[in-house]
Simulated assay, not measured.
Amino acid sequence: MSAEPDTEIEEELPPQELVLDGWHRARGARMVEFAGYMMPIQYEGIMAEHLWTRTHAGLFDVSHMGQLSFTGEGLDAALEAIIPASIASLALGRQRYSLLLDEEGGILDDLMVSRRPDDIYMVVNGATKYDDIGWLIEHLPDDVTMNLMDEHALLALQGPEAVVALSRLVPSVEGLFFMQCAGFAWQGHDLWVSRSGYTGEDGFEISLPAEAAEAFADALCAQAEVKPIGLGARDSLRLEAGLPLYGHDLSPEISVIGADLGFAILKKRREAGGYIGHARVARELAQGAPVKRVGLGIEGKLPAREGAEIYAGSTKVGTVTSGGHSPSLGVPIAMGWVDAAYAATGTALEIEVRGKRLAARVAPMPFVPHHYHRQPS
Rank of each mutant, 00 (worst) to 15 (best):
G230P: 05
Y275W: 11
S251G: 15
R115D: 05
V144L: 04
V32I: 14
A57W: 02
S236G: 02
L296E: 00
E4Q: 13
M1V: 10
A282S: 14
L266F: 13
E299T: 11
A308P: 00
A360G: 08
I83V: 14
A57T: 07
T128V: 12
V256A: 07
G93W: 03
A48P: 03
P303C: 04
L68Y: 14
P40T: 10
P332I: 03
D339R: 14
Q375I: 09
G58H: 06
L59T: 04
W52S: 04
A57L: 08
I46Q: 04
A213Q: 02
M1P: 09
E73K: 13
W186I: 02
Y121Q: 07
G66K: 05
T55D: 14
A282C: 08
R357W: 11
F178G: 05
R27M: 03
G273N: 12
D142R: 05
L231F: 13
E271W: 10
P369S: 12
A304Y: 00
L18H: 00
Y43H: 09
K268W: 07
G74K: 04
G330F: 10
A241Q: 01
G242E: 03
D110Q: 02
S328N: 12
A289F: 04
E211G: 06
G200F: 02
E151M: 12
R94T: 13
L154C: 12
T128P: 03
D150K: 12
T145H: 13
L169R: 08
A81Q: 14
E49I: 02
Q95L: 15
A35P: 01
A219H: 05
V123W: 00
G134T: 06
Q375G: 09
F34Y: 15
L68E: 07
V320G: 03
I82W: 01
V144M: 03
E17Y: 10
G106C: 05
